[in-house]
């Protein structure tokens, strides 16, 4: 492959990497927002209150989402770091 073809490809890679870091930055914000949702649930004793089991499922689903998302992002970052290093940066 000629050098000409290489350049846009590499730039695209580092662009991706920056957006990846943006996502990593955003993830805790998403988590905080999702975990703030319980603040909106009704507090009163009367009917229509959220059941604890539903709350557990919701909170743990958010947790799972964050863990899986975080894991995926961390792996992508690792790969992108390795590629960067290969390029001799």
């Amino acid at each position: 492959m000629s050098a000409k073809h290489n350049i846009p490809f590499l730039e695209r890679q580092s662009y991706r990497r920056r957006r990846l870091i943006d996502t990593i930055r955003m993830l805790p914000v998403i988590g905080a927002v999702l975990w703030a949702v319980p603040l909106l649930w009704r507090q009163s004793e009367d009917s229509g209150t959220v059941l604890t089991s539903d709350a557990i499922i919701y909170i743990f689903l958010v947790w799972l989402l964050l863990v899986v998302g975080g894991g995926w992002l961390a792996q992508s970052l690792k790969r992108s770091n390795a590629e960067e290093r290969e390029r001799g940066r």
Partner: peptide
């Protein structure tokens, strides 16, 4: 859990 005494979402924001 739902039947127990902590079965309802009671949380001070």
């Amino acid at each position: 859990i739902d039947a127990s005494e902590i079965g309802q979402w009671q949380m001070r924001g």
